[in-house]
Computed example of a mutant assay.
Amino acid sequence: MNLPANTFKAALRSGETQIGIWCSLPDPNVAELLAGCGYDWMMLDTEHSTAGPNEVISFLRTVAPYPVSPVVRPGWNSPVEIKKLLDAGAQTLLVPYIQSAQEARSAVAAVTYPPKGVRGVSGITRATRYGTVANYATRANEEICLLVQVETREALSQLKEIAQVPGVDGVFFGPADLAASFGYPGQPSHPEIKKAILDGIGVLGDLGVPAGILSLDQDFLREAGTAGALFIAVDVDSGLLRRSAVARRAEWS
């Protein structure tokens, strides 16, 4: 069997804008519904949800028939967590809270087999299609896409160093955590935060490194896209559900 192609990674390398949706509700039915809504990618979040590897493998199976690229966020930059998600078949990971080039190198090592990395080797996993993908151990990294999340003032100060770590395929900005780090908790669209992120997107553009972002502020997302962001998450499943439910109830007030 052939190694599955990572269309999301290929699109980023080609400079194609990818519009995504955040999936935080740990239910494969929600993931399946969203998978058929026309987004280029969807985030399966295990950091700020109760989902774990068992749920992720269910999500990945559920969305596989749909033309959408699943991205998985582990709870931390942990080689143990990352190993489980990769063995489950995840090919694109967004690793949170990267503070330095050294932490980015640790994330790269976690997705890479020895001798260059520390990913544990298991030949019969969903990732290898249970041992049927020829030469998986030597070819896996061709299709693994590693995104790292910059979400603090300290990380922004080291953005160039983080982005230039070999093996990092993209850098994602987290406005909510950046706002808290800058002293504006709960204000992800504060002008200082927006400027810092837009400046950061420009820095990444100069380096040729894809930039990504999630925000519920659609005007800000359009600014980010104009600035050069390539992978843009435009909403969150739980937020969409609540806003729609509140709006429909208001119609009957």
Rank of each mutant, 00 (worst) to 15 (best):
L93Y: 07
R13A: 09
L178G: 10
A51D: 04
R243K: 15
F59R: 11
H190N: 12
R13H: 11
V30K: 07
S14G: 10
E251P: 11
V95G: 14
N54T: 13
M42A: 05
R73P: 01
D219W: 08
A224W: 03
P74G: 13
G20H: 02
L33H: 14
P70V: 03
L44K: 01
G15H: 07
A101Y: 10
A229Y: 00
V121A: 13
D217F: 04
G202R: 04
Q149F: 12
T62Q: 10
R242P: 00
S100V: 05
T125G: 07
A137D: 06
S69P: 04
S58T: 15
H190Y: 12
Q102C: 07
Q218I: 05
H48Q: 12
A245G: 15
V121K: 08
L207Y: 08
V236F: 07
L156W: 02
P53E: 10
S78A: 15
V108E: 11
K84L: 15
I21R: 03
A250E: 14
G228K: 04
N29M: 12
L44T: 06
W76T: 14
V236G: 11
Y66T: 06
Q149C: 14
G123T: 07
L241R: 12
A31E: 00
G186Q: 04
Y97R: 14
S78Y: 13
V246F: 05
S181D: 06
R129E: 03
R248Y: 15
E16H: 12
E16W: 06
K9A: 11
A179Y: 03
G120E: 03
T17M: 04
T128E: 03
G75M: 09
V234M: 10
Q18R: 09
W41G: 11
E223C: 01
D177W: 09
A31W: 00
A88T: 07
P65H: 02
I197P: 06
G208S: 06
N29K: 04
D199H: 15
D206C: 02
P96G: 07
S58C: 09
G167L: 06
A176D: 02
E81P: 15
I19D: 01
K83D: 14
A180E: 10
P65G: 05
T92S: 10
F182T: 00
S157N: 14
S244I: 13
D199I: 04
F220R: 04
S215Y: 02
M43C: 11
R129N: 07
I124N: 15
R139T: 08
A196H: 06
V68I: 15
S215R: 04
Y97W: 15
R249H: 12
G239K: 11
E16L: 00
A104E: 11
V171M: 05
P70K: 01
F8D: 01
A211H: 09
Q164G: 10
E223R: 12
V121M: 14
E32D: 05
W22H: 11
G131V: 04
Y113K: 02
G183H: 00
I82S: 13
P4D: 08
